[in-house]
Nucleic acid binder design. Structure first.
Length: 596
RNA sequence: GGUCCCAUAGCUCAACUGGAUAGAGCAGCGCACUUCUAAUGCGCAGGUUCGGGGUUCGAGUCCCUGUGGGAUCGCCA
């Protein structure tokens, strides 16, 4: 509660000085919103102040309450329950607030570009297989955080690092050469990423087959895994790639380009985008250079076998490899290179945010420490936006067991279900065919995004297909539906010549007041969400707001209200609520329908 | 084994970072549609916040401990 907070906390300081002759510490002035069961809008927790007051919490509360009513126009009344001073905020204040909010295009947003430039990385897939459910959580999360930071006044650069190099892509390449017979996305009708993924799986089958045969010939499992001929082929492919063999390079480029065009389709459907793409094949060399520089400057050390290490025991971690003995890059090497390239390319950059699963927490701890040692001061502010796994009712997704939920399939399924439900209910009868197709996506994809974003990113989450596709209760479609209601009201009002306005002489009843108070919370919710990189705070807030609105809508006539002033006021509140709903959902990356 | 994370209604999740009687949705039961869009609203029922200690005016939240789950500790990414 920002605006009221500052008014009231200064007032409480003055009250304490006046009444108790001492100035309370800022942390002892605890203001919170009043619980539903009590009368009032804002509550001061009196306990921390009793030491100054030298009297009981009840008495101190009453004294402060009296003082505030006498000296602060915003405070109209109060009551004290135990050590809680519940303050009733004046109707004039709420009306003034609503008028201010109404006048703003994006109420609650910070001024553009007021807080510096940050970078948000998300997605960052391997190029050997299609995107799946885990990537959806990652992408929605990263994209939403970027939007939230933007709304909070940051300039945001959205990026990803594409893992286009390494043994994994070589495996697909080997399988394609062996078994592909020149198959292309065009000839097969398969999406490029799906086609390449198919050969990755094929490689794996063949590899396992060879292992089995070797074991039958008397090899140990370990030996068999290391000696399977097809694995040698892949390793040979990687070696040739590193030597820039023209044939291998051409194949690598061709297959990667298939994957990219496949990914582009999926990103487009997901509604996410990037300002700049980084490719590992371009950044790992920078990483190697930086590591060598680190060796010269003494941050890293070389072992006898030629491998390069960093000693982080002083930081409570252990020793970590940064370059293999054969001089090739490991994961850490290229991440060092990528980070440094970014800092160099964006000199204004304050820090970077990495949207990566929580199984890599240790990796990022190490990475940020290393960057600091290499002289990149900003890296100490870097943030690993670590999120939990998405689990299925039957357990974790496992590619071996075929339980991976494909991103394209899931999106299509969501839209199809939206269609089924809409047709069943005859909701979209008056709407053109093509407009309907767009609506199914808005609703179905909206349901999925909201479902994945409403839980705290840090926590692992359960993906229940039946529940995710649900359109009732705490779901995206329920929120969209209420937004559509506000639009329908405005359309009808325009036809009837009713305008939304806030007259000085209308009385605000409790139903309106509850909604206004909810709207009032938005700026501080947005700020908290940005500070903690947590879209779920926006999601939970907008659901609360919508519930309040839905209840209000059911209980209070709006256009049917006969009192002209009240009608216009309710319409104004409706409109303002709708705008906040829309902004919240846009911050989650959800497109809003006009009707549904 | 070391380090880190998690445990809240039958299920999925909240709880403004230490504040009042722990809240929602789903599932269950009941009520309300000649609709300002019922893809709704209202009500009922549902809890030893994993167990045990501690810190204080006050603990789901902080500390210790036990139990159960997960991640990580690769010259994988």
């Amino acid at each position: 509660m920002k605006y009221l907070d500052s008014i009231l906390s200064t007032a409480v300081v003055s009250a304490a000085k006046d009444l108790f002759g001492a100035e309370p510490e800022a942390q002892h002035i605890q203001l919170q919103k009043t619980r539903k069961d009590f009368e009032g809008d804002v509550t001061l927790v009196v306990f921390p102040l009793v030491r100054l007051a030298k009297t009981s919490p009840e008495k101190a509360g009453a004294m402060i309450g009296d003082w505030l009513v006498a000296n602060t126009p915003e405070v109209e009344g109060f009551n004290v329950v135990k050590g809680f001073l519940n303050l009733v905020v004046s109707e004039a204040y709420w009306k003034g607030f609503l008028q201010d909010a109404f006048a703003e295009e994006h109420f609650g947003y910070a001024p553009k570009s007021s807080r510096g430039q940050v970078m948000v990385e998300y997605s960052s897939p391997n190029t050997n297989k299609p995107l799946h459910l885990g990537h959806l959580r990652n992408n929605f999360l990263g994209y939403s955080v970027a939007r939230i930071l933007e709304a909070n006044g940051h300039d945001v650069v959205k990026v990803q690092i594409i893992n286009d190099r390494g043994i994994h892509i070589c495996k697909s390449m080997v399988a394609w050469v062996k078994f592909g017979e020149g198959e292309t996305p065009e000839s097969s009708g398969l999406k490029g990423d799906k086609l390449v993924g198919k050969y990755y799986v094929m490689f794996d089958h063949y590899y396992k087959q060879e292992i089995k045969e070797l074991i039958e010939q008397g090899k140990s499992e370990e030996e068999a895994k290391a000696e399977a001929p097809i694995l040698f082929e892949a390793q040979e492919m990687l070696r040739k790639w590193e030597q820039k063999d023209p044939e291998v390079t051409a194949l690598w480029e061709k297959m990667n380009s298939w994957v990219y065009s496949g990914f582009d389709v999926t990103y487009h459907e997901m509604g996410v985008s990037f300002d700049k793409l980084y490719y590992e094949s371009n950044t790992y060399l920078t990483g190697k250079e930086e590591v060598m520089r680190g060796v010269e400057e003494g941050f890293f050390y070389k072992r006898e076998d030629g491998s390069v290490w960093v000693d982080l025991t002083d930081d409570g971690l252990d020793e970590k490899l940064v370059l293999r003995k054969d001089g090739t890059a490991v994961y850490m090497t290229q991440d060092i290179g990528t980070a440094i390239l970014r800092f160099n390319e964006f000199p204004e950059l304050k820090y970077q945010i990495y949207t990566v699963g929580n199984e890599q927490e240790y990796h990022f701890k190490v990475l940020f420490l290393i960057l600091g040692k290499l002289g990149f001061e900003n890296a100490k502010d870097n943030f690993h936006l670590s999120y939990g796994m998405v689990e299925l009712p039957e357990g974790k997704m496992k590619s071996r067991e075929g339980t991976v939920v494909d991103a394209d399939d899931l999106l299509a399924e969501m839209a199809a279900t939206a269609q089924e439900i809409a047709e069943e209910q005859g909701k979209l009868d008056g709407i053109s065919e093509e407009e309907r197709a767009g609506l199914y996506k808005k609703i179905g994809y909206g349901a999925l995004k909201y479902y994945l974003l409403k839980v705290d990113p840090k926590k692992k989450m359960m993906f229940d297909p039946k529940e995710s596709i649900d359109f009732f209760g705490n779901t995206g479609p329920f929120i969209q539906f209420n937004y559509v209601r506000t639009l329908a009201l405005l359309r009808k009002a325009a036809e009837a010549g009713v305008s939304a306005s806030i007259a000085d002489d209308v009385e605000i009843a409790s139903a309106e007041r509850a909604l206004i108070r909810k709207i009032y919370e938005f700026p501080s919710v947005l700020e908290d969400a940005a500070k903690s990189y947590d879209p779920s705070q926006i999601a939970n807030y907008v659901y609360d707001l919508v519930k309040e609105y839905s209840s209000f809508y059911q209980a209070s006539p709006i256009l049917k209200e006969e009192n002209e002033g009240l009608r216009s006021l309710r319409l104004a509140i409706s409109q303002q609520t709708g705008e906040v709903i829309r902004d919240c959902m846009n911050l989650l990356g959800v497109d809003m329908p006009e009707r549904m």
